[in-house]
């Protein structure tokens, strides 16, 4: 009787030798553990190399400063920069600026994800939309987003909506283009499977299309983010109302080079942190779910 062990509590009995041979138990297991160890020692070495490189860079900087190649007004010492960073943290201006910039960035980026997804999915699923709207999006990609600022100021007035608009214009194209590619990369079988389960249009978008787009969108989202970040900084430099770009300008006005450098470091640090914390996580998620096929 084939029914013996068919639905017993010990699936081990019921599983065929074929299955046991061809499949390892997911996650854990000695091989993965070994890889992880190798990974860990590799990471330590890499961190060491990076530390040596940046310490050398810092030493060089200090050396140039000590040799008085340029006047301290033009090239402050690392510790000067560090002190002005601390000063502006103490008086709260950096926190305020970061908050203002991040708020604009998050709003602009969120809107561009929303609109970019809609445009991209429409282009990816309809030939006529792609020919028309798609060509517009591609064409506008050659326009540096900061060139929208004069127009944005006329439209929205001298307020932060103008800056948000520039940020949005900076990233929406990249996101739309990757969403378009993402929709087109979805295997038709995914839709058919959703259809046979009786999914409504909304359900198949929400449960199937959107998640299926993630691997091909990951790159576009990241690109969109860095475009948004650059556009924001450019806009804040030109049109001064709070934000990190404003602090940079303030540094210039006060002839405070160490403040300028400190803010530049802050900008780099934020960019890196978002990349490492958020996008690395998205990539790890894709890797875990899709396995190597998506890598």
């Amino acid at each position: 009787m084939p029914s013996s062990g068919m639905h017993g509590d010990e699936p081990g009995i019921a599983l065929t030798p074929v299955d046991i041979d061809t499949t390892s138990v997911p996650r854990g297991g000695s091989t993965t553990a070994r890889f992880r160890e190798l990974d860990a020692s590799g990471l330590v070495l890499k961190a060491l190399r990076l530390a040596v490189f940046y310490l050398a860079l810092l030493a060089l900087w200090q050396l140039l400063y000590s040799l008085h190649v340029w006047s301290p007004y033009l090239l402050p010492s690392p510790s000067d920069v560090w002190h002005s960073f601390i000063d502006y943290v103490d008086n709260g201006l950096i926190q305020k600026a970061v908050r203002a910039s991040m708020q604009r960035l998050v709003i602009g980026y969120a809107i561009s994800i929303l609109i970019g997804l809609i445009i991209g999915m429409a282009c990816g699923s309809n030939k006529y939309v792609d020919e028309t709207l798609g060509s517009l999006v591609l064409g506008l990609q050659s326009l540096p987003s900061i060139t929208w600022l004069p127009l944005a100021i006329l439209w929205f007035g001298l307020n932060q909506n103008a800056i948000i608009f520039v940020t949005f214009m900076g990233s929406v194209g990249a996101i739309a283009i990757s969403a378009r590619a993402g929709v087109q990369a979805i295997p038709p079988l995914y839709r058919r499977a959703a259809a046979t389960m009786g999914a409504s249009r909304y359900q198949s978008v929400r449960y199937v299309l959107l998640p299926a787009m993630v691997p091909s969108m990951a790159q576009g989202l990241k690109l969109g983010w860095s475009f948004a970040w650059r556009s924001l900084m450019a806009a804040e430099l030109i049109f001064v109302t709070m934000g990190l770009g404003h602090l940079l300008n303030l540094g210039r006005d006060l002839n405070n080079m160490s403040l300028v450098l400190a803010i530049m470091f802050v900008i780099v640090a934020i960019g890196l942190a978002v990349d490492r914390i958020f996008f690395a996580r998205v990539e790890a998620w894709v890797q875990e779910r899709w396995g190597l096929e998506a890598a």
Partner: peptide
């Protein structure tokens, strides 16, 4: 349980054999 996949219910698809 009926298809004998209890042990692999937490596995992702790329971790399964063709039969599974």
């Amino acid at each position: 349980s009926l298809v004998n996949l209890r042990r692999f219910e937490k596995a992702y698809i790329h971790e399964l054999s063709g039969g599974m």
